[in-house]
Computed example of a mutant assay.
Amino acid sequence: MALVRTGGGYRIGTAADFDRWIAERSAQELAEPFTYVIGTDGVLRLAPRRSEHVVCAGGEMVLGAGEIGFVQERGRWGVREVTNQSTGYCPDVASWAAVAGALDGIGLGRPDRFTHEVVFRRCPGCQEHNIVREGDFVCVFCGSDLPATWNVDPAA
């Protein structure tokens, strides 16, 4: 638990923050996506891909989480790919609004939606988290039907 309390991704609140962060990345690092979260303050935080999302967020709640990759075209940085793939937070695809807002706030070009959407549901029967594949809303653990709407957050 100490890692979560002392951890936390690099906070990217401005274009200058992003410029500093990206300048320190190697070509090898930039070849694969990074772990990201959008904090409840609406700010992007980044960490190496193999980092846990909960650690990237410093153990705090988030508005969005997943993986993100960057590309430089004509001297400008933008988002190459962005997902909501986080088994730590299991964010709904509706979290795109928070992700888009954070990226727009720092002036990064981005796609119009997640480049890969993951549909998460919690089974009302066994309480296990599921990834819904090919529209099959059935729990892989107990066979119960999964709800049509996102229900991973216990407060939801």
Rank of each mutant, 00 (worst) to 15 (best):
R133L: 11
E52S: 15
Q127G: 03
I106N: 00
V119Q: 02
W96S: 10
L103F: 07
A148E: 13
C139V: 02
P154Y: 10
A102F: 04
A2N: 13
R110S: 03
V54C: 11
D92I: 03
G107W: 02
E52D: 14
G125H: 12
G143P: 02
Y36F: 15
L63A: 15
E32I: 13
A65E: 01
R49C: 04
F18K: 09
N130T: 00
V43L: 14
N151F: 06
V55M: 14
C139H: 06
N84S: 02
C56K: 03
C126I: 09
G58D: 09
I38K: 04
A97E: 06
A31C: 00
V55W: 10
P111M: 05
A15M: 04
Q28W: 02
Y10R: 14
T40N: 13
W150L: 07
F120D: 03
V4E: 12
P91I: 08
G69R: 14
P111G: 08
I131V: 15
T6I: 11
I38T: 08
S51F: 09
G78C: 01
F114E: 03
R80V: 00
G66I: 04
L103N: 04
F70Q: 04
E117P: 01
V152N: 06
E117K: 12
A57D: 05
V37M: 03
W96L: 07
V152R: 07
C126M: 11
Q127K: 12
I68L: 13
L103R: 07
A155H: 12
T6W: 13
R25E: 08
F137L: 15
G39S: 09
L146A: 06
Q85W: 10
D19H: 09
E32F: 10
G39A: 11
G101Q: 01
P154I: 13
E32H: 13
D17T: 11
N130P: 04
F120P: 02
V37I: 14
A23K: 12
P48Q: 11
L46C: 10
N151T: 05
T40Q: 13
R45C: 09
D19Y: 02
R133Q: 13
E67W: 05
V71Y: 04
T87M: 14
W96R: 09
V71E: 14
V152F: 12
